Structure formats: structure tokens, C-alpha cells
Amino acid sequence: MKKYIFLIACLLFAVSFARAAKVDTVETYSDAMHKKIKAVVITPADYEQGKQFPVVYLLHGAGGNYKQFYELNHAIADWADYYHLMIVCADGGVTSWYWDSPVDPNFKYETYVSKELVSYIDKNYKTIKNKTGRAISGLSMGGQGAFYLAIRHQDVYGAVGSMSGGVDIRPFPNNWDMAKRLGTYAENPDNWEKNTVTNMLYLIKPNSLAITFDCGTDDFFYRVNCILHDKMVERNIPHDFTSRPGAHTSQYWANSVLYHLMFFNTYFKKHTPKA
């Protein structure tokens, strides 16, 4: 009898998660960079019912693109449905690091993601058009980007997350084209110092951002994430930090993103008006 009850429970769970969310690819235009840029937009099954929805923006890692998160884990569409929220997977170029580059005017991804893309989504979708209805997270380069953008645009985002994020870029001066975006560390140290997340914590206003981040213990970014956690503790900045087994891998991020969606859902429920 218990076996049949378990099977029925599993069936009901599966039915409740039958994918009804809509997954689209949209083409936006960046005035700042004079080019078209694609994004994945996921809307929940009840989108057409007329309410306004919170939005989670997800930023891919170096070498990835706007499709990375959905390809990592199609279940993010199920969770968009379950939590009644939208997910927007932005494109940040192969190695933009989501900065407005001080040395290359062709890279203005801070402007694109935090202004142009957010404006496009708010204009074309039924969104909650204030910071309490927006969260941003990302993996690796995108984790750094999410923190960087959220700290610099606390009027735009209310919650932020990072998965295996490159939250201190200074130990890696020769990696991932960062020198092309900031100039070399030897010749442009100020660009590196002011654009690394661990040096930006003083900009976080009290109670301005809900923060979560995590990193696997076998990740090459693990140490800088632990240092970021320690610095937040020193500054009494409320946050969730999770350290768990894992490396800089797709398997780790496919699991991690689900925890971030859960964290953001809790934030949205607390800070946005009920329908």
C-alpha cells in the first residue's frame, strides 16, 4: 500500500511540474554598443492572467552566452512556473565581465544589462517595475558581474547572487581577457582595484540588497569567495554564503541556480505586494 501511495505522490508532483512556462529568445538593441543582442526570456504559465511579475536576471560565464543557463538546467523553466516569476538570461559577450570598459568603447555591458535590457523587459512585459521586483545572479564571470552591477545599481536591483563568482579579479591578471577590458594590471592598477567586488563593499547601503552567494570547495575561485564572506562579516553586511563540495563545473551550477531561485522567491514574497 505504501508503494502505491508513493507512486501516486510522485505522479502528482510530476504533474504539478509539467512544464507550462514559455521559453522565448528575444532580440534587443543596445544604443550604447550599436548592435543587436539576444536574450532568453522565460515567462510562467499564469503570465497571461494579468498580474505583474518579478524578474530574475541571470548572467553567464566567460565563454558562454545567453543560452547557457537554460542549457545547463531546463528545470529553471519549471521553477519560474512554480514561483510565478520571470527569468531573463542576458548575453554579456564572451568576456565582457559586464563592465563598461574604460579602455575599449565597444564593451559597455554595464549600461546594456542594467539600463537597456531592464528597460526593454519592463517595456515589453508585465513586470514589477521597481527594485523589489528585480534580482540578479550569475556564474563565474557572471557572478562577478551580478555583484558588480547590483552594487553599482542599488536603485535597480533588490537582491543579488553569485555562483562560483570571480569576486576578486586581481589574482588573475592574465586570464579571461580582463586585461583587454581594463588595461594591464601593471599599467592600470586603479582600474583593477576599483572594479573588483571585494573592494566595493563600502558602497552597499544598509538593507539595500538581499545577498546570497556560494562556491564549491574545489573551485579555483573558492578562496576569493571565502575572503568576500569574511569581509562582509567584518562590515556586518547581512548575507547568505554557502560552501559545499564541488568545482567550477556545469553540474555545480545546474544545482546552484535552483537555490538562488528559491532565495529570490523568498525575497520577492517578502518585499512585493500580494496579487
Rank of each mutant, 00 (worst) to 15 (best):
V167A: 03
W79I: 15
Y82M: 14
C89Q: 05
N124W: 09
E110G: 00
S140V: 10
I151E: 08
I136L: 01
G145P: 04
Q144W: 03
G93Y: 04
P105A: 07
R152C: 11
Y70N: 02
V160D: 05
R134W: 02
S137A: 15
A80T: 12
G142S: 09
Y82R: 15
K131D: 04
M141D: 03
A135R: 05
Y120G: 12
S162P: 07
Y112S: 00
L72T: 08
Q154T: 12
I136H: 04
E116V: 06
Y109P: 04
Y82N: 11
Y120E: 08
K129W: 05
T132R: 08
D122E: 07
T111M: 13
S101Q: 06
Y112M: 05
D91E: 14
R170W: 05
D155F: 07
K131W: 03
S164M: 14
A77W: 01
I136Y: 10
N175R: 14
M141A: 03
A75L: 10
E110F: 01
P173G: 11
V88S: 03
P173N: 14
S119Q: 15
H84S: 13
S164V: 05
W79P: 05
I76K: 10
A80S: 12
V88N: 01
E116H: 06
H74F: 09
I87G: 02
V88P: 03
A150D: 14
A90H: 11
I151Y: 07
S137D: 11
V103P: 00
R170G: 05
V160F: 14
G143V: 03
A80N: 06
I169A: 09
L139F: 12
D155S: 10
A75W: 12
N73W: 04
K131A: 01
K108I: 01
N124L: 06
I169D: 10
H84E: 10
S114P: 09
V113L: 13
Y98E: 15
K115C: 00
L149N: 02
E71Y: 13
V118F: 06
T127L: 03
A146I: 01
G133F: 01
C89K: 00
R134F: 00
S162I: 04
Y83E: 06
N106S: 15
G92I: 03
S164P: 11
N130C: 08
R134Y: 01
Y70M: 07
A146M: 05
A77P: 02
S140C: 03
D104Y: 02
L85Y: 00
